[in-house]
Amino acid sequence: MNTRLAPVASAPDPVLAAALERAQAQVNRVVLGKAAPVRLAFACILAGGHLLIEDLPGVGKTTLAHALAATLDLSFQRIQFTSDMLPSDIIGVSVYERESGAFKFHPGPLFAQLVLADEINRATPKTQSALLEAMAEQQITVDGATHKLPTPFFVVATQNPVELAGTYPLPDSQLDRFMLRIGLDYPDPAAERALLASSDRRELLAQLTPCLSTAQLAHMRSATAAVLASPALIDYVQALLAASRAHAQIRVGLSPRAGLALLAAARAYAFLEGRAYCVPEDVQAVFPGVAAHRLIPSASSSTSRDRLAADLLAKVPVRN
């Protein structure tokens, strides 16, 4: 349908597009019946953001992170957060070496291209901050020495929203560090039956082959940043931001940083759709994931954040 058009930005490279489709298909073979969240996860990675998966245990959060790492040919580390964990447990520690007579830095599990931060809300705020700081800076500083984290660097964090005893839920301001927050939810019956009938996930994960090289991923990320957001689309994004600030049931609306994240995610989504330009539908697809965890409902509001985001989408007109 776009063949007749001559968009300003060039369409994605067909080879890359095919590889991207293959990568998504492979992840979908492991995480069954979750095409939409998988697509959002890919969009998040293309846009260079960090992903927060908030859902119950056992719905496949870890599997998804594993599958992403394997498919994208990224080095993978998993950190299981506990309340007695210290910042050095994740970023690493300097140890005195008798042979050299000097301190040597031993990198922690954070030094991987894809880090799964499991149950991040079990860690103390101190440890959480260390992680979030690393996420924002893409580097860590220990004993005055700065250590670069690998590139690309993705954090996929999970959070259990139900079991709250002994946890430290991420403060609203910290949630902002995650570009997207998705839920996985229970699989639908057909997908669940297929899941039960098929072999062990771990075996499947071991069979996964990388579909995209690091170089290809870097190339796609730059192509994603070049996806055109026309003035009309910028208008729409801005209207959404403005509406979130004017909404009666929202105490704190979306920040400009949230707007940038929204636009970046929408670009990535458009890229995944094979388009070199954004349409409002791209924004609508990523909006709940980008916006819901950033909205702070007013005290009197009993509406969930997801509902508020959906409400905004339904209210803000797309052009005229």
Partner: peptide
């Protein structure tokens, strides 16, 4: 009709 929509989307969103 579909062609019209394609034209519109192209004009509105694929061009600055």
């Amino acid at each position: 009709l579909q062609d019209l929509f394609a034209q519109y989307v192209g004009l509105r969103y694929a061009h600055a």
